[in-house]
């Protein structure tokens, strides 16, 4: 493991995703990626009494299924890294309460999926853990009521608004060679473009995504064509166009291999405004669909850039702008790695 350039970690010793799992709610199960998710619930309550308990259940089930797929018991995991959107990270802390694993709680808003994956890969590569488990979750109703309004309140939302994904994703990282190799991670800086509208987070997060992607290319001497897919977390219809334009202005044409998890998870006719968002958006698309596509050989190298709007309701009410962050992780199909960029040594 070494640092390359300013913000990129390169894992040359072999760090692998041993297994991953995704649990989702009804709208996601009904979406175009529905068949790739391990666990699908037919209603938002997921058989629980409250939405918060439903979200916890989603994370618990994703973690359980992930460990089951890896054939590893919780006792054999050295570290658990998780985060979510609820105040005090309630979902993660309460799921960790049930696990006999040392726990680090991380908050990166919707960038948490790749934040935990990058941190887990570094800790495993550095020998501080043999196996590390990561998880993240979000729930449409818990996020709505915490960050916005009561779910049944009649408010006309603009087309720029996003729709929080209900789901949870978990991944187990280790050194045993597996199907997916974590090759590099680029840790993002907090970027605040000055936007203040919490119903247009795609535009608020796009500069952070562009910054991390550009930094990644610079650090590794890489170019967009080194990747089969560069995918952002939840920029949606508005932000995904902006990030492409920002990268084009910097001289990087990503139009051939760019997509956004928030656009992939729902069908165009599903009523989700500009697209999906939330911690679970990038987590379930990556751990459910993208890993499946890597394993079957449709892609060889992905760059997943999870984007987070570091939104605080109090700060927004005090007319403060919305800071944003993006963390990227390069995942490759193990055993069939493409030729790397020249100077990065990837």
């Amino acid at each position: 493991m070494k640092r390359v350039g300013k913000q990129t970690w390169l894992f040359d010793e072999g760090v692998y995703i041993q297994a991953a799992a995704a649990a989702v709610g009804p709208l996601e199960a009904d979406g175009p990626l529905g068949k790739y998710f391990d666990i699908c619930y037919r209603d938002l309550y997921c058989g629980e009494k409250t939405w918060e308990l439903a979200e916890r259940r989603l994370m618990r089930e994703a973690v359980g299924r992930c460990l089951q797929k890896a054939g590893v018991s919780a006792e054999e995991v050295d570290l658990f890294l998780a985060g979510d959107l609820l105040n005090q990270q309630a979902t993660s802390n309460y799921v960790a309460r049930e696990l006999p694993i040392p726990f680090l709680c991380l908050f990166g808003a919707c960038s948490t999926s790749m934040q935990t994956l990058a941190a887990a890969a570094a800790l495993v590569a550095g020998g501080l853990a043999d196996r590390a488990l990561t998880a993240t979750s979000s729930h449409n109703a818990t996020a709505e009521r915490q960050f916005r309004y009561p779910t049944e309140l009649g408010v006309q939302k603009p087309k720029t608004a996003t729709f929080t994904v209900t789901g949870a994703g978990a991944a187990l990282i280790g050194r045993t060679p597996g199907r997916w190799r974590i090759r590099a991670a680029t840790i993002g800086k907090v970027i605040d473009a000055g936007l203040t509208n919490p119903l247009d987070m795609g535009a608020a997060m796009a500069p952070a995504a562009a910054d991390t992607i550009e930094q990644h290319f610079r650090d590794l001497g890489a170019s967009p064509s080194d990747y089969d897919l560069i995918v952002t977390g939840d920029l949606s219809r508005v932000g995904s166009v902006i990030v492409r334009e920002l990268l084009a202005e910097a001289g990087y044409d990503v139009s051939e291999m760019y997509n956004d998890c928030g656009l992939m998870i729902y069908r165009p006719d599903q009523k989700v405004f500009a697209g999906g968002s939330g911690c679970a958006c990038s987590a379930v698309v990556t751990y459910g669909y993208l890993l499946h596509e890597l394993a079957r050989g449709a892609f060889r190298r992905l760059f997943v850039v999870a984007t987070g709007a570091l939104l605080s309701q109090t700060m927004v009410q005090q007319k403060q702008s919305i800071p944003a962050i993006a963390h990227g992780v390069v995942i490759e199909a193990a055993g069939q790695e493409p030729d790397g960029p020249r100077s990065g040594g990837m």
Partner: peptide, 9 residues
Amino acid sequence: LREVKAFQP
């Protein structure tokens, strides 16, 4: 802040 308006419906 000014140029992004063209991208916001």
